[in-house]
Structure formats: C-alpha cells, structure tokens
Design a protein around this nucleic acid. Sequence first.
DNA 1: TAGTTAATGCAACATTGTTGCAAAAGTAAT
DNA 2: ATTACTTTTGCAACAATGTTGCATTAACTA
Lengths: 125, 125
Amino acid sequence: MKSARTTTAKTEIQELIISSSVALSHSEIQKSLEGLCDRVSIYRVLERLMEEGVIHKIVNVDGVVKNAWCHSCSAKHCHNHIHFSCQKCKVVTCLDNVEPSFKLPKNYKVSEMNFTLPGLCPQCS
Amino acid sequence: MKSARTTTAKTEIQELIISSSVALSHSEIQKSLEGLCDRVSIYRVLERLMEEGVIHKIVNVDGVVKNAWCHSCSAKHCHNHIHFSCQKCKVVTCLDNVEPSFKLPKNYKVSEMNFTLPGLCPQCS
DNA sequence: TAGTTAATGCAACATTGTTGCAAAAGTAAT
DNA sequence: ATTACTTTTGCAACAATGTTGCATTAACTA
Ligand SMILES: [Mn+2]
Ligand SMILES: [Mn+2]
Ligand SMILES: [Zn+2]
Ligand SMILES: [Zn+2]
C-alpha cells in the first residue's frame, strides 16, 4: 500500500503544467525550474503524473515529447483530440474539442489515439 | 546542379523499404544490412530518400522513428493516412486508405498530418 | 582514363531517457 | 518532538538515437 508523497518538485512541475496553455517538453520544464531538482527527478515526477492519469504525453513530429495537463478527460482517462504543432513558434497545443472520425478495417483494436498536425498556428500565420 | 548518385547502400536500403509491408526503424534497417555500411550512412540515405519524397517518417508513440515507402501519394507527396502501431508485435503499418476527417478552428494552417493508433493488430488480437 | 564531387567511414559529440544505490525527506505513530 | 518507515531524490553511469566535421572513397562525366 504505497502512498504518494507531496514534494516540492512534484508540486512545482504539476503547477507548471496546469498553468501552461501549451504542452511542455522535459527541457522546457527543466529551464523553468532553474535547478530546483535533478533532471532525473523531472522524468520520475512526469512518470508519476502519467500513472495518476492527470497528464498525457504528445510525441511531436520531430520526436520531441511534450507533456500536457488532462483538461478534457474527466472520468475516463482518454485523449482522442488533435494536437497542433506550430512549425514556426514550436508550440504544441491541445485542441481539446477537435476529435477526428475514421473507419478502421476489421480486427484492429485501438487502445489510444495520437493525432498531431504540424503547420502554422493562428499567431504565426 | 548537384546530381544524386546510385550507391550500393542507397539501392539496398531503398529495396528494403520498398519490399517491406511494414515501416522500418533505423536499427531494423541496420540489422538487415549486416554491416554493409556505416550507421551514419543509413541516416544520410534515409535523409536523401525523404528529400526525394519517396519515403515518409512515422514517429511512433514510444518515440521510435519508422520509415515507410510512399505507396499512396503519387503526384503530390502527402500522407494523411492513419498508421497502426501494434503494442504486442511492435509493427507499424500504413493504413493507406484510412483518412480521418475533422473540423479545425479558424486560422490554423495544416501542412502535414500525423495519425498513429496504438493497439492490437489483427494478427495479435 | 582522368577529373570532379557526391557519398561514405570514422571519430567525436549532443540530446534524451533509464537504472542502481545511497542519502534525503515526507508521513504517521509514539 | 522524536522515531521508524518508506517514498522520493541526487548522482553517477549507462544506452539509444541522431548530428557534424573531415579525410577518403567511389560514382559519374568528359
Ligand atoms: Mn492533448
Ligand atoms: Mn504511412
Ligand atoms: Zn506558432
Ligand atoms: Zn501485432
């Protein structure tokens, strides 16, 4: 019965992600924290937040992993919304209410969805 | 006016990707080639094939980059089809004729599409 | 066949992420 | 407040992936 503990690192990282309007990468989080904790700890806190189901990861087209707070998924932890990835300002945004529809061939069992659209965001276009 | 040259490495890698029914990662290609060329050369050949517009990259949910031959995009180099990523056998497949539809907010200019669905493929489910 | 230059091999490096283990810190009971 | 217990952290070391510079090799052209 291991119980989670409230630490400065976890609180700070959590607040950072909650208050951010865009998804954050590990390196972006590290810069914001300014040496508050080790880089390994950031990975472990993110891992913990994932297990708690309060954040989700977005693997960008360039391979950079971004972390975003789960705003839309309340009861069941799902995120089948689209992510927009601006090629100019490098910002990744959750388009929480844009959910694509498609028809899959038989016998494919989907467990998750990962949609990322590179392009130009409203600010940059 | 630099002109491309036909080399063993390029020919081999190209044939490997063409004849494969699934998308291939760098390490998978390297294993198949059995020391035919340096790993850096593989990266450079893949880069070249990308520029030629004959292959496309798929960034998997686990961050692994897979390379696939462009079968569906003939004239214009586009790949707005879905990719299925089996969590059991780790295979990534292009579902060339599954194209999702969605409605984006104004002022977003999409240049590419990236759809990946993790789950269980027909063989594994 | 010789000259030109694209492509390669090699070493060195950067970035991202993982693991083991001892030290530190959070939590609850005394 | 002190103690005991266990989670979380810091550090070092490592692995995987990708990039760059430069000398050498090899493909194409004349
Ligand atoms: Mn999202
Ligand atoms: Mn594809
Ligand atoms: Zn932008
Ligand atoms: Zn499978």
